[in-house]
Computed example of a mutant assay.
Amino acid sequence: MTLAQHLLLVVHSGAETTPHLVEADAGLPQLAVMDVAATRGDGIFETLSVASGHPQALEAHLSRFERSARMLDLPAPDRGVWRDAILAVAERLAEYEESWIKTVLSRGIEGQPLPTGWVYGTVSPDFRRERTEGLGVVLLDRGYRSDVAQSSPWLLAGAKTLSYAVNRAAVREAQRRGADDVIFVSTDGLVLEGPTSTVLAKRGERLSTPPSEFGILPGTTQDDLFHAASDWGLEAIVEPLTPDDLRGADAVWLVSSVRHAAPVRAIDGAAMTVDAALTATMNGFLRSRRS
């Protein structure tokens, strides 16, 4: 079994029994073809980084996992079972400086009452280029207003669901335009998030990010960086941002659990300043977390 094939299944056995863990080989078939994870993308997930065997922002990821489950009317995840599964997989990754773990919970087999859940992990890709040279991004209209979470909660804006076809299509569109990634903008002209990341902008001594009330995923990496911002002489602010705010910023980043802080070097082809020193400080802080 290779490292990438280590898998720990989280099995929910029904209300009358305690959910338990079963280890399996990810290189062998495990998921039923009628599971709605595959047929409908009806489920949720979290991805968290692991530093030398230590899951980072573990409790924050578990809380967000529970939040997404509520939004999709899924059974509440047993926090202790999922934590144990994550820690067991992380222990397998202890010899690696950077790795990642994904937790997945689907509604299960079509027409049956039990959900399906699993946890797996592997070594992280090499993101040195993205963290140093930065990313070229394009601004793409997400197709709904910034108040979508309040006006249309059934669209599940801000839930971390398995339905990622639109996010992947947006990245392919960015690549067709010669860029690396995307920053979504609402139809009423406000900055939202990346397909797999949170947006940060530095303007003077302010480090800003858009509000999660705009129907975006609350960022665990952003939250950790905001708690550290005062140590770097910065005031962390959650506030609305426009595309012009980004273009006029001293620096912009896309931050996420596995890639960490990737500076934006260009927006729609227009060059942006890369703050190499602050980026290195951010990524050093993120790599050094042990909880």
Rank of each mutant, 00 (worst) to 15 (best):
P210V: 02
P210D: 01
P211D: 08
P211R: 02
S212V: 14
E213F: 00
E213L: 13
F214S: 05
G215A: 06
I216D: 04
I216F: 02
I216W: 07
L217T: 00
L217D: 02
L217Y: 04
L217R: 02
P218S: 13
P218A: 14
P218W: 10
G219W: 08
G219R: 06
T220Y: 02
T220V: 14
T220M: 09
T220C: 10
T221P: 07
T221C: 06
Q222Y: 01
Q222H: 09
D223N: 12
D223V: 01
L225D: 05
L225A: 09
L225R: 06
F226H: 13
F226T: 05
H227A: 15
H227K: 15
H227S: 15
H227E: 15
A228W: 14
A228K: 11
A229H: 03
S230D: 15
D231M: 13
W232L: 09
G233N: 06
G233H: 03
L234K: 04
L234V: 06
L234N: 04
E235V: 13
E235N: 11
A236T: 08
I237E: 15
I237F: 11
V238C: 13
V238Y: 09
E239C: 13
E239A: 15
L241D: 03
L241K: 03
L241T: 01
L241G: 04
T242G: 13
T242L: 12
T242K: 13
P243C: 07
P243E: 07
D244W: 00
D245H: 14
L246M: 05
L246T: 04
R247H: 13
G248W: 04
G248V: 09
A249D: 11
A249M: 10
A249E: 08
A249K: 07
A249C: 12
D250L: 00
A251P: 03
A251D: 03
V252D: 03
V252H: 05
W253K: 01
W253D: 08
W253T: 06
W253C: 05
L254W: 02
L254Q: 00
L254N: 04
L254D: 01
S256C: 00
S256P: 01
S256D: 07
S257P: 06
V258C: 03
V258I: 10
V258F: 01
V258Y: 04
R259W: 09
R259D: 10
H260N: 11
H260D: 14
H260V: 11
A261D: 07
P263S: 12
P263M: 11
V264E: 08
V264W: 01
R265M: 12
R265G: 12
R265F: 10
